[in-house]
């Protein structure tokens, strides 16, 4: 039961091709909880593949030509708090700041957050709103999957056994973006409800993503489209009636449950309030820069 430390994508690909029982370790802040509590047990022939030393996975690349920010899957929360990410993808940066504690942000990675496929994943919610795409790699080659299509159920994603998340591609866009999350204490809390809003003043579109109100992070397609078409982008404004419709559509897209953290009714209420506030805040900011 060894631990492998591949140092490059090539080595990693090769390893996953050769070994049949591999467990990818991408920070461990979620995986280790399962091991510690006995809910996850390693089989004797499992090979743990620690991704920490895979050089390419921790790269951050800003490509203004292609208008894309490429984040290696091994980039840690802590790295997301500063430039250039904080400037190019501020809602991802805000989401990162709400994740756990400094200890968690030092160890946890964006790839790990995605692979865990939790509907409460703060980073995932931001990335869905950002219309980010994942590059999944194996010895068979690469494929791209929208972040919104990656998780299919709690703790289930579309990764094949020999595949790994190589990087996240985030479109760079002018405009405004924000992430808000509700928890019942002021720090160190799992999201009861989270909303990310990205307003693109280039494409005149709005994308609204919701966390913790369904089995996966939800892209509120209808609400996003309605907001995109009803916002008067020239003056960065929306009528209160239209905004109310956006809020109602957002709530309608949420399918929350009652659990020990909150109620379905509160969660629906909350995603509406947060969406309204984020859009108002975004448009106010955009108006100032007109």
């Amino acid at each position: 039961m060894p631990v492998a430390h591949p140092r490059s994508i090539g080595e990693l690909t090769e390893l996953l091709d050769e070994e049949s029982h591999t467990v990818l370790l991408a920070g461990g802040t979620d995986f280790m909880v399962g091991l510690n509590h006995g809910s996850t047990r390693l089989a004797p022939d499992d090979l743990i593949v620690d991704l920490r030393l895979v050089a390419e996975l921790s790269t951050v690349e800003v490509d203004y030509q292609q208008q894309v920010l490429r984040l290696g899957a091994g980039v840690r929360w802590d790295d997301l708090l500063t430039a250039p990410i904080a400037e190019i993808a501020p809602c991802l940066s805000q989401a990162a700041r709400t994740v756990g504690s400094h200890q968690i942000r030092t160890a946890g990675t964006i790839g790990g957050n995605l692979a865990t496929a939790s509907p409460a994943g703060d980073g995932v919610c931001a990335l869905v709103a950002l219309d980010a795409t994942l590059v999944l790699t194996s010895s068979r080659g690469q494929r791209t999957v929208a972040v919104s299509e990656f998780a299919i159920a709690p703790k289930k994603n579309v990764l094949e056994r020999d595949e790994f998340i190589e990087r996240v591609d985030i479109p760079i866009t002018e405009g405004w973006q924000g992430y808000s999350k509700i928890g019942t204490r002021n720090a160190m809390v799992i999201s009861v409800a989270g909303v990310a809003v990205v307003l693109s003043s280039e494409s005149n579109t709005c994308r609204i993503a919701l966390g913790s109100v369904g089995p996966t992070v939800i892209l509120s397609t209808e609400a996003s489209q309605f907001a995109g078409t009803t916002i008067n982008w020239e003056i960065a404004s929306i009528t209160s009636a239209d905004l109310e419709t956006v809020v109602e559509m957002t709530r309608a897209s949420a399918t929350p449950i009652d659990d020990h953290r909150s109620t379905a009714a509160y969660r629906k209420h909350a995603v509406g309030v947060l969406t309204k506030r984020l859009i108002e805040q975004g448009l106010t900011t955009l108006r100032k820069s007109l």
């Binding site: 709400t98 992430y179 999350k181 928890g183 720090a187 809390v189 506030r277 805040q281």
Partner: peptide, 17 residues
């Protein structure tokens, strides 16, 4: 700093709220 508002790190709340 977000800790100065209800909601804390979650960045939920504006002064007017």
């Amino acid at each position: 700093h977000p800790y100065h508002r209800p909601g804390g790190a979650g960045n939920t709340t504006r002064a007017s709220d």
